[in-house]
């Protein structure tokens, strides 16, 4: 029982970070109907921003965290303006967007490798939080795991509030439903697209820092962050609750696989899950319709 609870807590903690990543895929998909694979690169940049803000600039952790998030928000906006906006202006078919996103993701990864002062080496975050876990009865909860969960939960709460209770949030929902009709309401849809990229980028930065602290930072970290994309598809691309539920489930499935079977099977199971979902229920748990996922 203790082990079960222990795994559940770990699963929730990693799942909540996946959720922070997954909402970025879902937000962009809900408006623009394509999977923004550059998002993994943005998360990786977030991990590096946080690392350098902490080590090079010796900023206090909260400042470094917010700083990384703002930096990746700006990065996401730059990606949108330079890579996707020209495609939108030309009304390019959505396949172009996906190819462009993949290209952007490879570009982001390689720019990190190419930069002389960063390079392909693995970086380890400085130890900010003591490794001694907090004891709750017979359970040992890692301080970092707890922090990951709390920060992610706060971020997701803020996002839900923003989407459901603010005017811009409503405009995002309207635009995700029909971009032409929202322009007819006087909504500046270009601004909505920027907002969505900024939000996704902001949470990508937070997730990148948390992820970097938990594991290590290296240019191919995007391969792992792709699992949050799986979570988004699992939950139903374009649906925010879907992204969160899919992510938490994926986190839990992963930790249980590592805990009870073997960590070698962890990623295997994640990808089998993706394929199974695509075959059995292509729109995911909470996806809006049977659109093709590309």
């Amino acid at each position: 029982m203790t082990q079960f609870l222990q795994q559940l807590i770990n699963g929730l903690s990693i799942g909540s970070v996946y959720a922070l990543m997954a909402v970025g895929y879902s937000l962009v998909y809900s408006i623009m109907n394509f999977s923004n694979f550059a998002h993994g690169g943005v998360i990786m940049f977030g991990a590096y921003f946080g690392f350098f803000y902490l080590t090079l600039f010796r900023l206090p952790f909260p400042v470094a965290l917010i700083g990384a998030a703002l930096s990746t928000a700006i990065l996401a906006i730059i990606i949108e303006r330079t890579a996707y906006k020209p495609l939108r202006n030309r009304r390019a078919p959505f396949l172009y967007f996906i190819i462009c996103a993949m290209g952007m993701s490879i570009f982001l990864e390689n720019i990190i490798i190419a930069l002389p002062f960063i390079g392909p080496t693995f970086r380890t975050y400085p130890e900010i939080f003591s490794k001694t876990p907090i004891k709750i009865g017979s359970l040992a909860v890692g301080r970092l795991d707890l922090l990951m969960f709390i920060i992610s939960a706060i971020c997701l709460g803020l996002l839900v509030y923003f989407i459901d209770f603010t005017k811009i949030g409503k405009a995002i929902q309207a635009t995700s439903y029909n971009i032409k009709a929202s322009a007819l309401m006087g909504i500046n849809t270009d601004f909505i697209i920027i907002t969505v990229f900024a939000l996704g980028g902001f949470f990508a930065g937070i997730a990148g820092v948390l992820f970097g602290m938990k594991y290590t930072v290296y240019p191919q970290i995007g391969v792992i962050t792709n699992k949050s994309f799986i979570a988004a598809v699992f939950g139903g691309l374009g649906s925010l609750p879907g992204a969160v539920i899919g992510s938490v489930l994926l986190g839990i499935i992963e930790t249980f696989t590592s805990g009870y079977i073997s960590s070698q099977y962890r990623d295997l199971i994640a990808f089998v899950l993706l394929i199974a979902v695509l075959v059995i229920r292509p729109r995911g748990l909470m996806g809006k319709s049977n659109e093709d996922k590309a």
Partner: peptide, 19 residues
């Protein structure tokens, strides 16, 4: 029509007043 099917009637009306 292009009403926002994912939103309530009142939200649709309020979006009309977006500006």
């Amino acid at each position: 029509r292009l009403v926002f099917a994912n939103l309530t009637v009142e939200d649709n009306l309020l979006l009309g007043a977006y500006l």
